[in-house]
Design a protein around this nucleic acid. Structure first.
Lengths: 241, 241
DNA sequence: AAGTGGTCTAGACCACCTT
DNA sequence: AGGTGGTCTAGACCACTTT
C-alpha cells in the first residue's frame, strides 16, 4: 500500500456506507444493521464504526433512534419542503406556498441547462414551469429542468400530476436523494413574461435564484431558476463559521 | 442531580472551553494546553476530551496541528475576507474588493439598528459608510452599524483609518470573535443616493443584503446593509443538508 | 430479558514536530 | 528522545425500546 493513499478505517467505512446508499442497496426509510453487526462485517471495532456513522448522522443522511436502531433518512414527512427552502415571510411566520403548474413537457437542453446539469446541449430534458403563490398573490415564477436520462419515464408526467415536493418524488420513485444544493442569487428587472405572471410591471426588481441540486454521487440532477418577488418575503442565509 | 439537567461530560467540557474563549481567558492565536493536560484538569479521559475538541474544531473555533498542538483560531491571515463573503465574480475568478470609506461617525441607533443589535433605539452606535469597487467600478454600497457599548473607543476611528477587515480588527483589539452571521436578502430598486454612488439610474435592481453578525456569546455585534450591483457578480450559497 | 444506541474509560500504536 | 495530535481497540455501564 502506498503511503499517500492511506485512509483511516472510519473514513473508508463512511464512504462505503454512503456509496451503498447511493447505489440503492441501502434504501431510504429502512434501518441499517446494528452497530455490532456492521462492525463485525467491516472487521473494525464498534468505536471506529460509530465514528463513521457519526459523520453520516452529521450529514443528516441517517437518523439514530436510541434503543431502536439507525434509519436511513427519508426526505419526505414534516419538513420536506423547508430543508432547502430559504424564502421566509418577513413577518417571521411560516410560508407554505401553494403552486400552480403552468406547463410540464420534455425538450432539448439549451446551453445553460446543459452546463448546469453536466450533459450535452441537445440532450433530452423535462421542464416544469410553475407559479407559486403567497397569501393569495403570485410570488415565485419557477422553471425547473431535469435530465431525462437520470429519471427515465419522468416525461410522462402531466401538468395535473406534478408532485409539489419534487425531491420527495425523486427519492420515492427513483431512489435518488438530493443531498446538496448550490444557489446563485442576483437582482434583476423582471422580463415581460415574468412581470405578467407576477402581476407587476416589466423591470420590477426580482430576486433570481439559480439552483443546481446534487445527489449522493455529487451529480447534478436538477436545474431550477426562481424569480421571486421580495416585497413581503426574503431569502434567509445563516452562516456559521 | 435532577434528570432533565443531565449533560454528557464532553458537552460540558465543550461549553466550558467555549466560554473560556468567549471571556478572553483563552486568547485567539495561542495554543490550548495539550489534550493530556486538559483531560487531567477536567477529570475526564483523553477520549472524552477529544470529543469536546472535535466539536470546537468542527466549529472552526480551533485548529489542530499534529505534533504541535491545538491553536485557538485566528480570523485574520489568508482567508479573513472570504469566510463570510459570499459575493463572487460570475466568471469564477476571485474578487478582492478595494474599498473607499465615505464616512465614519457615531450617532444614535434608529429603530432597525436597535432591533438588529438588541439595544434600545437611541443608544450610541458607530457607523461606517463605504463603497466597494470591483474591477475599477463601484459595486457595493455598504453601511455598517456597531454598538459603542460593545466596542469602547471605536468612535475614535476616523475615515482614513477604518480597517478594511473589520472582523479581524474586532478580534485583535477587543477579543471579540465573530463566529456566525445571518443575512436577509431581497431585490429592490436603488434609491437615488445609492444609484448615484453605484453610477446607475435610480430604480436599477440591486441586491440588498442585511447582515447581523454574532459573537461567541451569540450577541449581535454588527449590523450591516449592503446594496450590490449584481451585473457581474452573484451571491453564492451552498446548502448541504 | 434482550437488543439497540449513548457515554466513558484505559491503553496501545502511529505520524508528526520540536529539541 | 519526548511531546503532540490521530487512529483504533476492547470493554464497561447506562438509557431506551421491544418482545
Amino acid at each position: 500500500m502506498s503511503k499517500i493513499s492511506f485512509k483511516p478505517m472510519y473514513q473508508q467505512v463512511y464512504e462505503s456506507l454512503r456509496s451503498r446508499m447511493a447505489s440503492g442497496e441501502l434504501a431510504p426509510g429502512t434501518f441499517l444493521p446494528s452497530e455490532n453487526v456492521l462492525a463485525e462485517d467491516y472487521g473494525v471495532s464498534q468505536g471506529t464504526l460509530r465514528k463513521a456513522i457519526d459523520r453520516l448522522a452529521a450529514d443528516k443522511l441517517v437518523v439514530r433512534y436510541q434503543g431502536k436502531g439507525t434509519a436511513i433518512a427519508l426526505i419526505d414527512s414534516d419538513e420536506a419542503l423547508f430543508r432547502f427552502f430559504r424564502l421566509v415571510h418577513s413577518d417571521g411566520h411560516k410560508l407554505l406556498p401553494s403552486s400552480q403548474v403552468l406547463g410540464a413537457e420534455s425538450g432539448q437542453a439549451g446551453e445553460d441547462e446543459g452546463k448546469a446539469l453536466a450533459i450535452a446541449a441537445g440532450d433530452m430534458v423535462f421542464r416544469i414551469h410553475r407559479l407559486r403563490m403567497l397569501d393569495g398573490s403570485p410570488a415565485i415564477d419557477e422553471k425547473i429542468t431535469v435530465p431525462c436520462a437520470a429519471f427515465p419515464g419522468i416525461d410522462e408526467l402531466t401538468t395535473d400530476h406534478v408532485p409539489n415536493t419534487l425531491y420527495n418524488y425523486f427519492q420515492e420513485r427513483y431512489g435518488t436523494t438530493v443531498c446538496r444544493i448550490r444557489e446563485h442569487l442576483i437582482a434583476k428587472g423582471a422580463t415581460a413574461g415574468t412581470a405578467k405572471r407576477l402581476e407587476v410591471r416589466a423591470g420590477h426588481p426580482v430576486l433570481q435564484i439559480r439552483r443546481v441540486a446534487y445527489d449522493l454521487n455529487d451529480r447534478p440532477v436538477e436545474y431550477r431558476v426562481m424569480l421571486c418577488l421580495t416585497d413581503h418575503v426574503h431569502y434567509d442565509a445563516d452562516l456559521k463559521r
